[in-house]
């Protein structure tokens, strides 16, 4: 996994009290974390702060996996 994916998974695990070891980049993060859109926003905030970027939330369309999310971050970093 890439550095971004790793950091992303760490933050997600921290935010949602999940076990980072059980999370892999290919997973759908809604399912894996058991969250809904409102919590996805919380994750987004964490990511924006962490990477000091802005991710317009409409770019999240079609982005369901950790890998895709990490790619989105990389595009903006």
């Amino acid at each position: 996994m890439t550095a971004t994916e790793k950091r992303l998974i760490e933050l997600a695990a921290e935010r949602f009290s999940a076990d980072a070891n059980l999370l892999t980049p290919g997973q759908d993060f809604f399912e894996a974390l058991g969250i809904k859109s409102i919590q996805a926003l919380d994750l987004l905030t964490d990511l924006e702060d962490e990477f000091d970027i802005e991710i317009p939330d409409y770019e999240m369309q079609g982005v369901n996996t950790f890998a895709a999310l990490a790619a989105l971050i990389d595009k903006r970093a």
Partner: peptide, 8 residues
């Protein structure tokens, strides 16, 4: 059933 309504 709210997977994404808060997201666009």
């Amino acid at each position: 059933d709210d997977v994404r309504p808060y997201l666009p």
